[in-house]
């Protein structure tokens, strides 16, 4: 077996997860190949870390903490009545929608400048005499 093939099966070899003949073959190879043996040792040490850190110690105060957290949550729920818990998000949603609608409405005139009617347009003809009495008419008189 070549080194590359050994590398591919090493993790299964270390976990005794290979058929008997392949296990023997890899054992033989590792005995004669320094580089593969070195990598196998590196893998073995790294995987061993996982076995060492399994089953952390039981915290003796665990249940007390669970109970305290459960009670805290229950108190909070009682302090906030059901209607408030339903109504609050509903009111906030309505306010948000109203805000969006108002924003759209405020922004709308800016899109239709042509339709905007200014007071000066109405007054202008009266103030601008040249428009009311062209220069030709004035000279003829």
């Amino acid at each position: 077996m070549k080194c590359k093939a050994i590398h591919k099966k090493l993790i299964f070899f270390l976990e005794n997860d290979l058929p008997e003949n392949e296990m023997e073959e890899i054992k033989l190879h590792l005995a004669g190949c320094h580089e593969c043996a070195d990598f196998a040792e590196y893998m073995r040490k790294t995987l061993k870390v996982l076995n060492q850190e399994r089953k952390p110690d039981v915290n003796p105060f665990f249940y007390t903490r669970v109970k305290a957290r459960l009670e805290n949550q229950t108190i909070k729920e009682i302090a906030t009545p059901l209607w408030a818990r339903i109504l609050q998000p509903a009111v906030f949603t309505l306010l948000l929608l109203a805000g969006v609608y108002a924003g759209i409405k405020i922004g709308q005139p800016a899109n239709n400048i042509q339709e905007t009617y200014y007071a000066e347009q109405e007054i202008f003809p009266y103030l601008y005499e040249m428009a009311a009495e062209p220069i030709e008419t004035f000279l003829m008189e």
């Binding site: 993790i11 976990e15 990598f39 590196y42």
Partner: peptide, 18 residues
Amino acid sequence: AKKNLQKKLYNCYKKKCI
């Protein structure tokens, strides 16, 4: 998962990250 782990650890071994 095991194959992927092996590949990752081999990369690390080659680059001597430990």
